[in-house]
Design a protein around this nucleic acid. Structure first.
Lengths: 205, 205
DNA sequence: TAGATTGTTAATCGATTAACAATC
DNA sequence: TAGATTGTTAATCGATTAACAATC
């Protein structure tokens, strides 16, 4: 298989989300034109992106949404649920344990970690908070590959190092700091301020 | 001024965050090389990006971080605090009201809205939850331009329409759905699943 | 059949990088 | 002065788009 550009991979989850939504709305078939209009993307780009992975449509009629969704799930490896570790059970961590947007999209939080003695052992949304000191052993024992990092900026790099040691290969980082990890580990950032600042550039107060 | 590419604007907040961190760590001067290594970006790209806005460095020595931070804050219009409306005081909304990452980065939540009668009138982190039915009037009266949207997917488009009507020009959308808004309104998405799926593509379970 | 839409090619467009004169 | 690093140009690289044959 040729090398897939990162930017293409980045759009696939967006396609998947929109297509899932269409199914949710009862739609069965769509076209690159329609999907593109929904997303503000050209139809040519959608077809080009998909063409990296195969031929999923039919001339004249477009795409069976259910089929395309399954293909995208397969490509993104989310047909089976990933078991995810969550480190840091503060406000963000708490909100993530309650977040119902993971259901049916390929992820389930199965382990909570915190270093606060007051939180360790307590039950949060049905999961026991484990001592962060046991993080490496626990994650390794369970074979987890994906983690969400919701600890203070000061601790983020330190915890990230332990995650890497534990065999984690994907880190969703909520700390407003740039993590340094080996090349085989993927990091994605979620920082609301970054997005807000991207918008204010264009807005006149 | 020439038109600035979106992709360049998108990197400025990342530079700002890293530079602020350097100050926090006591550093006073940096170079495009050093900053680039921290961020995994080429030094040439950083210099090119900055050159869209002026000359901020000195040959041989690099950049005074404090000065560059101030310039980026000015460019991104975050020298003064933006007053932000938050719609939806569920788990995510709650976490956002407690989030201390907004401080000194240009944003402050000043108004909470929800349509749940049980929540309306209650106090969340010092702010009274206002009836979402009053959203348009309240936002307009306060002249708010930026909003965070943390309502269920089903209601997101409907609320977004009201935000636009109220004069909001930037929406940070936490609902996993693509909003349709007029071209003068900026939308940014935060959807953890999108980021997770971007990573799992590369990870072998 | 006529209309619609795919997958793909080639052309265009835009972003990144390498290189270097300028200069601190 | 020698070394370092900027801002900028030109070259390279890669992504997007337009166009269209194929075909449902």
């Amino acid at each position: 298989m040729r090398e897939i550009p990162d930017i293409v991979v980045g759009r696939l989850p967006v396609y998947l989300r929109a297509l899932s939504r269409m199914i949710h709305e009862g739609q069965q078939v769509t076209s690159s034109k329609e999907l593109g209009e929904r997303l503000g993307i050209s139809s040519a780009q959608i077809r080009k992106d998909l063409s990296h992975f195969g031929e999923f449509g039919k001339q004249g009629t477009g795409y069976q949404i259910q089929y395309l969704v399954e293909q995208l799930q397969r490509i993104l490896k989310v047909k089976e649920e990933w078991k995810v570790a969550l480190i840091g059970v503060g406000d963000i961590g708490h909100a993530l344990t309650h977040y119902n947007g993971f259901v049916n999209r390929g992820f389930r939080i199965v382990a909570l970690f915190d270093s606060d003695p007051k939180k360790i052992g307590s039950l949060v949304n049905g999961l026991i908070v484990i001592d962060a000191a046991k993080l490496v052993d626990e994650i390794r024992a369970r074979g987890l590959k994906v983690a969400m990092l919701a600890v203070p900026a000061e601790k983020a790099q330190e915890v990230a190092n332990k995650l890497v040691e534990a065999g984690i290969e994907g880190i969703l980082n909520y700390a407003p700091i740039n993590l340094s990890v080996p090349p085989n580990v993927r990091v994605q950032h979620i920082d609301p301020v970054i997005h807000l600042q991207r918008m204010t550039f264009y807005i006149n107060s």
